[in-house]
Structures are given as structure tokens and as C-alpha cells.
Design a protein around this nucleic acid. Structure first.
Lengths: 144, 144
DNA sequence: TCTGAACCTTCCCATGATGGTAATGTCAAG
DNA sequence: CTTGACATTACCATCATGGGAAGGTTCAGA
């Protein structure tokens, strides 16, 4: 197949798909190398060729990434999405696992934030050198 | 210098320092290669040798890492810590920058979390295939 | 004194998701 | 036929950390 034939057949090259899906061409190739999306057909010149269904799949991937799912999680979600006999419980389990991970991460960052906020709040922030931030970081023990 | 002499002089090898500072030997070497800590002296056999002041510095680094500071930020903080003519305003500026970054990251994760929570909440989680989580991910447009 | 465990050294590779760049080849329009 | 905008692969970088291999050192105990 050649590219102009593919175009006439309603197919896209990687740049078109990138624009339509919101996934960069770079990442599309990367996902292919990971096996997250199946290997694209090629024109005779070696250009990747895509159809609407691929755009749809890549949008799915991008939305999942936007929700912070890992490639592993997206792999699971894609598998369930493409399996009509899936149980929604399986989907929810994957999502819940990620939700728990998000919660853990948020708590971790909030803990950092609280400590740092406290320190920043207690720092004069003037021309003098004394600074509770440095005092805390150089303290002999980890206590506040 | 040989190791037993160094020990008698109150110095440590990298394993001791790792234990005392809470920074792994691996990371101590890495920080040295980055220039975050100065190059350690060596015994004649090539073993790194450290003093109490180095333990102190590495603890400082570990505490800063625990607060999520980047290597770049820690470099700045170390510089200020070791500069007696620093202005606390400079320290606070570095900390505030990181605090802002933490806030941004937390908000980003909370946004993800909220969306995902909503989806998980609306998913039956039973044996049927219909699932709002997949519906959202495969939606034609990004709206809730 | 020998041996083995427990250290140390350097060097390379892996993570996860993404970006950059370079060298090279193809396509489409003027 | 040239030119510019595409495409291809391959490699390197990020950020902080860990793993492991291959080899040298130290030290305690038999």
C-alpha cells in the first residue's frame, strides 16, 4: 500500500493520529514498542498507517494517562475495555487500586507540605541569617 | 592512610556513614559524582573516609529529600547553610518555591482523585460489563 | 597463616513517561 | 526537480534510586 491510497481509504499517518488523539507521534511509537497498542500496518515506504479505531484507542490511553494511570494499569483497562464479557467489578478494582495509590501520594505530599509550610511560616525571611528551615534540616534528630 | 588508622582517628568508612546518616552508600557515591558533597578522602586502598561533619551534611541532605526537595534545591540549601552571611530571605525563597511546587502537584493529584472517585463511585462493581469508568475513558469528548 | 564473610571499589543497566536530536528517507506542491 | 514538511530508526537525557557483576580489602576466627 502507498500513502495516497491509504488516505483515500480513510486512513491516517502518525501525525494525523497524533493530532486527533492528543498523543504525540513519539509516544504512539513508544506505546507500540511496549505492546500497549498493536503494531501499526505500514505503507510500502514503511510509514505507519492508522484507522479511526486506533485514534479511539489512543484517546482512551490519553484519558487514562490524564487520570494518572500507569502503563500497566492502562494495559489492564484496555484489556477490559476490549472484552465484552468483562465484569465491571474488575474495572472498578483497577480504578480503586489507582485511587488508593493517588490517596497515598497525596497524603505523602500533604505531609511534606505541612512541615514545610510550618517552617516557611516561621522564617523571618529578612537579611539576617537565622532560619528555622535550616535549623530543622540540620537538627541532630528528626523532630519538630 | 590506612583504614584502621582512620578508624582510630574517629573517621568512618562509607558503610558507617550510610548507617549514621540514613543515606545509602550507593547514594552517597552518587551525590559525590553530582558534586552535591565534596569528594571524600581515600585510604591507600581507595576506600572513602568520612568525618562527623560529613555525616551531618548527609543527614541534612536526607531531611531535605524527605521534604521532597530536588537535588537542585538541596544544592541551594546546602550553599546557604554553609554560608554564615546568608539572608534567611534567600532560604525562605527556596523553600517557598518548593512549597508552591508541592501545592501544584497536590492540586493536580486531587483533581485526578476527584474525577476517579466519582467514576469509581458510580460503577456498580458487579458481574455486568457496563461501567462508567470505561465509558468516560472512551467518551468522544473530554467532559464529565 | 589461611580462609571466609563482610566489606569496599567501579561500571553498567533498569526503572517510568516523556522529550530531544541526528541522520536519513518519503511525500506533495510549486 | 527542488523544497519543505513530513516520516523512519537510534540514541541520549531527564530524576532519584536500586540492582548486580567482577574484583580488591579488611578482619575475625580456626
Amino acid at each position: 500500500m502507498e500513502l495516497h491510497e491509504a488516505r483515500r481509504a480513510g486512513l491516517y499517518n502518525i501525525g494525523d493520529v497524533a493530532t486527533r488523539s492528543g498523543v504525540t507521534a513519539k509516544m504512539i511509537r513508544h506505546y507500540e514498542s511496549l505492546g500497549l497498542v498493536k503494531e501499526a500496518r505500514r505503507t510500502e515506504a514503511g510509514y505507519r498507517v492508522y484507522a479511526d479505531v486506533d485514534v479511539h484507542t489512543l484517546r482512551f490511553i490519553r484519558r487514562a494517562r490524564d487520570l494518572g494511570f500507569s502503563i500497566r494499569g492502562i494495559q489492564q483497562l484496555l484489556g477490559l475495555w476490549q472484552n465484552r464479557r468483562r465484569a465491571s467489578a474488575d474495572v472498578r478494582r483497577v480504578a480503586q487500586t489507582h485511587l488508593d495509590a493517588l490517596d497515598a501520594k497525596i497524603r505523602e505530599l500533604q505531609q511534606m507540605r505541612a512541615t514545610l509550610e510550618h517552617l516557611v511560616h516561621n522564617c523571618h525571611g529578612d537579611s539576617r541569617p537565622d532560619c528555622p528551615i535550616l535549623d530543622e534540616l540540620s537538627a541532630r534528630a528528626t523532630e519538630d
